[in-house]
Design a protein around this nucleic acid. Structure first.
Lengths: 117, 117
DNA sequence: ACTCCAGATCGACGCTCATCTATCTACTTC
DNA sequence: GAAGTAGATAGATGAGCGTCGATCTGGAGT
């Protein structure tokens, strides 16, 4: 990710002139920013971040019935958070009889992780 | 970050018994999750993520008058986003005469970055 | 002192979010 | 098929968010 932004002069300029020239932020990066912001937004709730944390610890799939009692929240609320994570493409789910298992989608966090470091 | 969650048995259990034993998520990690979620939430808007992106590219300070024209947004809106980033502890600001300069606070993203990778 | 400008703050608007209770779906066991 | 159970969905509510135009603040230049 790179930006074609040239730093404008920092020194004083005669009044009447515009403060600085308009700069462009490439569309490609706009799209990347949107993708990463979607991921970040999904992780922007402590409950969801903890859910992802637990799922990442247990590389395999984890049953919802194990996730719910981790929080002081109703089952529908936890289900709602899992749905958000699913919609953001961070986790996937499988049903197996009565139980539902969730897992982290490999590489879902890769782009954001790379940008952050 | 580690969790003392033992995977409950995945096989069928006789009905009447609870689905799985209650597990605990340590308080220390709750606090860490809260800190990281604050950062993630602040990055959870494309505009703010792009702001941070630009600031990180230019290791020094960047004038607000250069940031505003990058977006198709009013000046107050950009100012609002910068405030959010400041409140999250991601950026800092300095005034210099008429101009205000923003910069990324070193290591602000470190904890989240480490957790993600 | 007066004017001009960069940036922050205010107040309002519509929309989204996190949470709850209640209900529904689908599978299992008797 | 009747009862029980895991999980998802629906609908409601109150709080928060992103955006705007208007206004305020305070330094700069004349």
């Amino acid at each position: 990710m790179s930006v074609d932004l040239e730093l404008a002069p920092k020194q004083k300029r005669p009044p009447g002139e515009p403060c600085c020239e308009p700069v462009v932020y490439p569309d490609v990066e706009r799209e990347q920013a949107e993708r990463m912001a979607t991921i970040a937004k999904a992780l922007g709730d402590p409950v969801r971040l903890q859910l992802v944390d637990v799922l990442r610890k247990h590389a395999g799939k984890v049953c919802v019935c194990e996730l719910v009692p981790l929080f002081d929240l109703s089952q529908p609320t936890v289900s709602h958070h899992l749905k958000k994570l699913r919609e953001a493409g961070i986790v996937g789910s499988e049903r197996e009889g009565l139980w539902a298992y969730y897992y982290v989608i490999p590489d879902a966090l890769k782009e954001l992780s790379a940008w952050l470091s």
